[in-house]
Simulated assay, not measured.
Amino acid sequence: MFRFEKYNIADWFSFYRILAVPLLLAFVWYGERTLFTWFLLVSYSTDAIDGFLARKLKIVSARGSQLDSVGDQITLIMGLIGLIVFEIAFMKANYGLILLAFIPYILQMIIAFVIYGKTTAFHTYLAKTSALLQGVFILWLLFFGPVYWLFYTMIIIGILETIEEISLIYMYPHWVKDVKGIFWALKDDRRTIRKKTVKKNGV
């Protein structure tokens, strides 16, 4: 049963990104590029707000991290839908590079669901950088047009982030949240403790 009191203010900012999907799809359907772009900007802005509030109010939780990740992924998908509809010429001209970055991302999602049964919530530094670049590029393209150095940077960082994400999935046999990156994972007790437990149980 859904209980409102279970969710804090940071969670509701994450929920906004999910609940905004029908509205964004309606703007796409009716060809309202300007409204779509402004509301997509609001969705991207809530990503920064919920993380800030969670840390500031010390209400970070596994549930909140998962909601944040789902909200991020849905917002990215909506951004891509917007580009396919409103910037089809750019998408066709650069579909090779876009697929080069997007296919590994889908693979990472599949691996996460197979191993964890849900999406990851590592929130690495590289993931945050990649998400920022994606948001800035998509919004800039929709508002003003393409900036190719930003596009290429976004693709490179996105591929590196996906490789790191897949590596972390295999480093952590159980779901964990908030891992800064591979360097920090190597020293993370959550990974080593799990290994000892698995070995002790003879699995």
Rank of each mutant, 00 (worst) to 15 (best):
H174A: 12
G71D: 04
K56Y: 12
R33G: 09
T162R: 07
D11N: 10
L41N: 08
I169R: 02
I88F: 11
P22E: 01
F15A: 09
F113M: 15
T75A: 06
Y30W: 11
T197W: 06
S14N: 00
Q73W: 14
K58C: 10
H174Y: 06
I156C: 07
I159P: 04
S61E: 00
L139I: 15
K56S: 13
V147C: 12
K56Q: 12
E161S: 11
N94P: 02
T119Y: 10
V147F: 15
S130F: 05
L35P: 03
G96F: 12
S14V: 01
T34W: 14
T120N: 08
L142P: 10
L139V: 14
T197H: 13
I88M: 11
M78K: 14
T46H: 04
L100Q: 02
Y116P: 03
Y30I: 04
D68F: 00
F4T: 07
L76H: 15
D68W: 01
K200Q: 13
M154D: 02
I49Y: 00
R194I: 08
W184K: 12
A54K: 03
I106A: 13
A127C: 13
L126D: 07
L23A: 14
T192H: 14
A26H: 12
N94A: 00
M154I: 07
P146T: 04
Y44P: 05
G117C: 10
F183H: 11
M1F: 15
Y172M: 06
F13Q: 00
Q66W: 14
G64N: 04
S69D: 05
F137E: 02
Y125C: 04
V42D: 07
T197E: 13
P22A: 07
L57K: 14
D68S: 07
E165N: 09
V114M: 14
L25V: 03
Y152E: 00
M154S: 12
D47Y: 01
F143W: 12
A89P: 01
K128G: 03
Y16I: 02
Y152Q: 08
L139R: 12
Y172S: 03
P104E: 01
S61F: 01
F102R: 00
F36K: 04
R33Q: 13
L150S: 04
G145C: 08
I166N: 01
G71E: 05
L168A: 06
A112K: 02
S45A: 15
L150H: 07
L57P: 03
A10N: 01
L97H: 02
V198S: 07
A121Y: 02
T46I: 02
F151L: 06
V203S: 09
V21I: 15
L168F: 05
Q134R: 00
S43Y: 04
A131I: 10
H174L: 11
I182F: 12
P22L: 02
S43Q: 03
T46G: 04
S61Y: 01
F86H: 06
W149L: 13
L141K: 08
I9L: 10
I157A: 11
L168R: 01
T46Q: 06
A48V: 11
Y116E: 09
S45Q: 09
L99W: 12
Y44K: 04
Y172Q: 02
K180C: 06
F122V: 03
E87Q: 15
F4A: 13
R191A: 10
K56A: 09
K196Q: 14
L150A: 09
R55N: 05
